[in-house]
């Protein structure tokens, strides 16, 4: 029984590397084709637009992108662990939980045409004004300084106001994720890392 399990496991292991490569290429092609298709049709919002609009509620994605950058491109040398794996998991879990709670607690539902220009910009948050085009299924950026009450009260036009993080805070989150990924994410280099991986 144990032998047959091991045999199945080895067969899976030997074939999986090539399958992983094929799967990765498939995913990249699907995403590129899908995004190009979404750009050329006015029915669907682009993938980029969906990710952009996920901020600030899902600001955790910015942090995770930084973390993935460190994890993929800048692996720590073998054996250079700053804290134990248990501490690393606790630190990362708390950080991620804190950021998720922060994002979900940001409430911009009460921002509307009447009060959007009364909300002061801060170093952390900014007001974003968008207008939905009649013929397109997405909102386009408007300069809030040029949006008047008459414009957004016009029933033929659809405006959306939201609170978003400033670019500086997004950069800090991205960089923070990178630092956390580099210092705390459990990762390692293989001893023969210099060997070329065939494609």
């Amino acid at each position: 029984m144990t032998q047959s399990v091991n045999k199945a496991s080895n067969a899976w292991d030997s074939s999986i590397i090539e399958n992983v490569k094929k799967f990765l290429l498939f995913i990249f092609v699907v995403l590129i084709v899908a995004d190009v298709a979404f750009v050329f049709t006015d029915e669907l919002p682009t993938i980029s637009q969906v990710v952009l609009d996920s901020s600030p509620k899902y600001l955790i994605f910015i942090f995770l992108f930084g973390l993935a950058t460190a994890n993929i491109f800048f692996k720590r040398p073998l054996g250079s662990r700053l804290v134990s794996e248990t501490k690393a998991v606790i630190i990362l879990t708390l950080s991620i939980l804190g950021l998720v709670l922060w994002g979900l607690n940001i409430n911009d539902d009460n921002i509307n045409c009447d009060n959007f220009n009364q909300i002061k910009a801060s170093p952390i948050y900014q007001i974003v004004c968008k207008e939905c085009m009649e013929d397109r299924q997405q909102y386009l950026n408007s300069n809030c300084n040029k949006v008047t009450k008459a414009m957004c009260s016009d029933p033929s036009r659809t405006f959306d106001f939201k609170l978003d993080l400033t670019t500086e805070i997004k950069l800090i989150l991205l960089f923070g994720g990178f630092i956390f990924g580099f210092l705390f994410w459990p990762q390692f280099q293989y001893p023969d890392e210099h060997l070329r991986t065939s494609f």
Binding site: I17, L24, I72, Y190
Partner: peptide, 12 residues
Amino acid sequence: NKTQKDNINYHI
């Protein structure tokens, strides 16, 4: 799994 160097991040 048992195989090394099959992770997505390793390939990228």
